[in-house]
Nucleic acid binder design. Structure first.
Lengths: 340, 340
DNA sequence: CAAATAAGTGCAAACGGTTGTTCAAATTCT
DNA sequence: AGAATTTGAACAACCGTTTGCACTTATTTG
């Protein structure tokens, strides 16, 4: 309805120029004290608020960061978002939000929408199927830096924050070994994810380290869907010699695997024990939490990713940007026994 | 580094005016076919993309909707966000995201940040402590319509989407009665929420309807924190005549109450049965899901809220806006037996 | 007391587009 | 052929704010 007050209106009411008003409002020293006060008083009275759109437009800066994740329904990512938001707010940035639903097409679409909005930067955790990065490379032309977190590409020349799960996985196998388990199965995630490779390598190293024979029959894969996880679990249970322990890719895979095992009459954590990655709050309420988990710090990863992005943006503004410098933050998680 | 191509550069390279380029790109009929093609070809070659910031600025429209919720970590809200996002994307809107963490101060801060960003509209689920609406009223001056969902204020002159839980609560009490339960306790949420009032009224009506005596000792309250819920459960268990059934405000209260009860040696769903509101995916994995829940359609509420907001925005643009028309969408949920 | 300096403002361009209006050339009509 | 019309493209204003520069007074300074 009624237009919002602008600097121009203040100017004309006071018979001064817009530049004077602009300077008066920002306490520019060249503006006389009386003018300054008059302007500020009127601005207040009229309920003037600077139009951020206009300012951002002029400054070619939006103070908006795009955040793209596979699915907000996964507690892991909702925790991550919280970390991202906290860091963003601290630095006056806001968050433009989008989900890929693990679909590369949708991922591309939201990334493009964000490009359109001219976000200052982008934080993304890849869809599990993404194997081309064109849509993200396109952001370079637009001078929009990208920080990957958790589900990062294996590329070297990108900014990223992630957990290196290799060591922790070795440790986890060792933990199981010490508890007396020898047949240790592993349900891994999609190949394309760096995380899957690390986990697999950790598993292999862990098994070797205990001088056990590596049996690839014990290594299954899931695309993270319930069905796929059930199929993997089914295969494992169908072995002549089923495993005594199962390591699962993440909490959701864990829950689905456990659920399936129970249906098959397995006495969970008795016939077969389960351990997993990620230690989420919800775990405490589930029927069969993993005996131990590997904490992946979703909140911390999100926070660090945002901080990294802000650092990059600041360098850019200061003109200190170097094309070939890529930041990498690698966290080394450890085992946590689950607190029931 | 290298600036992005603008309409101006295209114009100068082709020796035509910017207006011609602008029109050529938007297929304006007054532009000759040959010029049009030349322009579009060059635009493509240069990788031109319109600067949405500039356009939005001129059109005084951002295509950004602010979304404020208490906490993304609650699955209820992450589901709601998904619904909101789906509807938004369909209509080319994007989502600016913020959490209040159930803190009125933070809520105010994020609402103000969104006002600064000149969002086209706002969707909000109130913090459980919010009792003043100044920060939201302030948006009126900025012509930013607000749609409340789920945690809506009791005010009449606002747009809102919510579940009316009165009827479902009556039904739930009836269900328990039919199963033979007579001493039915109720752990309710914060007073200020409309939802709490509806539930309480439903409870009272439900109990009366079965010709049972209303015993206010059986009605406890929680601020939704774990401690508060435990305290409420503690009180109920300390009664000379503890309840045989407990209705809890939501899933989280349910889980905390159950956890506490177990610690006190209660055999859940044997000594005492538990029923709850909200039927979330995670429930299927929990140790003691409620026997029945009242589905609150978080996804649907989010989606409807977004659709409502878009309708309002469209009316506004068409100039059909009426100051005193307020939309209200009331959903009437029903009981669902929990699928384990 | 003229000249240099400082203080206080205004002018105008710029950010990247859109759009109403104007203007010239080409075409059609009478 | 001259008038009327259509076609194609340029001009210019505008959105709200910032900012370099110029300009006018007043105040110092030599």
């Amino acid at each position: 309805m009624d237009k919002l007050p602008t600097i121009k209106e203040i100017a004309s009411k006071l018979n001064v120029s817009v530049s004077t008003v602009s300077r008066a409002l920002s306490n520019h020293p060249r503006i006389g004290i009386s003018t300054r006060e008059k302007v500020q008083a009127l601005a207040k009275e009229m309920g003037y608020e600077p139009n951020a759109q206009a300012i951002f437009f002029k400054q070619k800066k939006t103070y908006v960061i795009g955040v793209v994740i596979p699915s907000i329904r996964e507690e892991f990512f909702s925790q991550a978002i919280s970390g991202i938001e906290t860091a963003a707010i601290e630095h006056q940035y806001t968050i433009l939000f989008g989900q890929s639903y693990d679909d590369p097409e949708k991922e591309k679409a939201v990334v493009e929408a964000m490009k359109k909005q001219r976000v200052d930067g982008l934080i993304i955790s890849l869809s599990k199927q993404t194997n081309k990065y064109d849509h993200l490379d396109a952001l370079k032309k637009f001078n929009i830096p990208v920080v990957y977190f958790d589900r990062v590409p294996t590329l070297e020349n990108v900014h990223k924050v992630y957990c290196n799960l290799y060591k922790a996985t070795v440790e986890m196998v060792g933990w199981l070994f010490n508890k007396g388990y020898r047949k240790i199965a592993f349900i891994n995630g999609p190949d394309k994810l760096q995380a899957s490779k690390e986990r697999l390598n950790g598993y292999i190293e862990g098994v070797s380290k205990q001088k056990l024979k590596i049996d690839m029959q014990l290594v299954e894969k899931t695309d993270l869907s319930k069905e796929s996880t059930q199929a993997a679990m089914h295969k494992l249970l169908s072995l002549k010699n089923p495993p005594k322990a199962v390591i699962t890719f993440n909490e959701y895979v864990h829950m689905d695997a456990v659920q399936y095992a129970i249906k098959q009459g397995v006495r969970v954590n008795k016939d077969i024990v389960f351990v997993s990655y990620a230690n989420l709050p919800i775990t405490g309420y589930t029927a069969y939490p993993p005996l131990v988990s590997i904490e992946q710090y979703p909140y911390g990863q999100g926070e660090k990713a945002m901080q990294m992005l802000i650092k990059i943006l600041n360098k850019k503004e200061a003109g200190e940007e170097k094309e070939d410098v890529f930041y990498k933050e690698e966290l080394y998680p450890t085992l946590v026994a689950h607190t029931v």
